[in-house]
């Protein structure tokens, strides 16, 4: 099939970008969207042009690296799918496809379709971990975890941190991402020791990073390639309230943290 692509081209973070039109000829239905872009890039390079820069890594839908708005929908609108797993059979001969990077103040464009998603890393650094004392490896069954809790934690842990939730949200809010991380660890006994400080710190860094707020539109859940539920946002709101009540008032602790 033959397609017309309108792709966002931007030289670097400081430049003004704009949509440029390319023709993608002889696209096979079995190509993934990224493979189609690879073919377009090969032609661009052969003609001496600058290839379209885009992020990709595993190309099997589990790493969360690929990230682009296709026709105004994050990851292209096929439910539960990243761009790399979106195949050209979902498009038709003669289609015009608009491809843009994620747009959010917290995700500045580095080049073309590549954005800096370091804000997510800083949110994880603020609390998306469990502290473990050194020593021997604990027995696998030393901490019993109920099936329901394990399933819930796993549902939240499925988040691959691609940022589609931010990209699709009308407010560029990162609530779905942060709530998945908060809920994942708060659901497990290993994460409970730090649950209050985790939610407080992660929300603080989320706010400082310049993400918007949640209007509960549900767009994030709809585009999430791992189908993370809006439920986790409610759980985080609950965690936050509980943490505020338990953490109220300034107090000094002897150990630094």
């Amino acid at each position: 099939m033959n397609l017309t692509l309108k792709v966002w081209r931007q030289k670097d973070a400081r430049s003004q970008g704009r949509l440029e039109t390319y023709q993608a000829a002889n696209v096979l239905a079995d190509m993934s969207f990224l493979e189609m872009l690879d073919v377009v890039n090969e032609e661009l390079i052969a003609k001496g042009g600058e290839p379209i820069a885009f992020d990709s890594d595993c190309r099997e839908g589990i790493c969360g690296t690929c990230s682009m708005m296709i026709n105004g929908i994050a990851h292209g609108g096929l439910r539960g799918t990243t761009v790399c797993q979106l195949h050209m059979r979902h498009f038709h001969d003669g289609d015009t496809i608009v491809i843009e990077p994620w747009r959010a103040r917290a995700f500045p464009v580095i080049k073309d379709l590549v954005t800096d998603r370091g804000a997510f890393d800083r949110i994880i650094q603020a609390g998306g971990f469990v502290s473990v004392n050194t020593g021997g490896t604990p027995d696998a069954n030393a901490l019993p975890v109920g099936k329901t809790e394990a399933d819930r934690a796993m549902d939240a842990a499925a988040c691959i941190g691609c940022g589609a939730c931010v990209a699709a949200c009308k407010n560029a809010s990162a609530m779905l991402f942060v709530s998945a991380k908060v809920s994942h660890l708060a659901s497990l006994p290993q994460g409970r020791a730090e649950r209050e400080r985790r939610v407080l710190n992660m929300v603080r860094v989320m706010d400082e990073s310049g993400f918007g707020n949640c209007t509960v539109t549900g767009s994030c859940e709809a585009v999430c390639p791992k189908e993370i539920s809006l439920d986790f946002i409610a759980q985080m709101n609950r965690e936050y309230g509980q943490a505020i009540l338990k953490n109220s008032g300034p107090r000094q602790s002897k150990g630094g943290d």
């Binding site: 026709n71 843009e100 747009r103 009308k170 407010n171 560029a172 993400f211 918007g212 549900g218 709809a222």
Partner: peptide, 19 residues
């Protein structure tokens, strides 16, 4: 804050699932 969170708008945008 929401306006500031997305300083440059999308060229094309489809609201997904949002009522």
């Amino acid at each position: 804050e929401n306006r500031a969170a997305r300083p440059s708008a999308y060229e094309q945008w489809q609201p997904t699932a949002a009522s």
